[in-house]
């Protein structure tokens, strides 16, 4: 299907949905959201792009193979768990770093939990896209 409107619109949508997906990912720690839903949203953005420009175009826009992204994501998640070893805690214990913390305020909390969520984001993003591309190319 070649539709100028869809192609032009999908380019905008991919950017918008990716930004929104990252927002959902970061929001996820204390509010609804997180890596899984973020990854799904980001994947949907690229699925729309694939519908407009074909899977070939979507694969080029993605630059990396989707399964590679999923594998790297798994690596992130595993690393988040192993990180606890450097602080002599048990596997998968959350590690926290508070930047600019004051007694009243926790500052900017960075954690290994966030790294894990980024990993989940990438795994979901990569595996959903590889499934969708496979189905799309099959038909």
């Amino acid at each position: 299907m070649k539709s100028i409107i869809l192609i032009a619109g999908s380019r905008l949508l991919v950017a918008l949905m990716t930004v929104f997906a990252v927002y959902m990912l970061l929001r996820g720690h204390n509010q609804p959201g997180g890596g899984f839903i973020g990854g799904l949203l980001a994947a949907v953005g690229f699925v729309i792009y694939a519908i407009a420009c074909g899977t070939e175009g979507a694969r080029q826009a993605l630059r990396f193979r989707p399964t590679d992204i999923a594998a790297v994501g798994l690596g992130f998640a595993l690393f988040a768990g192993v990180m606890a070893a450097f602080f002599s805690d048990d596997f998968f214990t959350g590690q926290w770093l508070f930047i600019n913390a004051t007694p009243q305020d926790k500052g900017i909390p960075l954690s290994s939990v966030l790294v894990f969520d980024v990993g989940v984001f990438l795994v979901v993003f990569g595996s959903v896209l590889s499934i969708v591309f496979a189905l799309e190319e099959e038909v």
């Binding site: 899984f36 595996s127 499934i131 496979a134 189905l135 099959e138 038909v139």
Partner: peptide, 20 residues
């Protein structure tokens, strides 16, 4: 649900392959 989603996605692709 997440695990089921993955399994059924696989099963669906397998069904398509089987039909082909």
């Amino acid at each position: 649900i997440v695990i089921g989603f993955g399994l059924f996605a696989f099963a669906l692709i397998l069904a398509v392959r089987a039909f082909r």
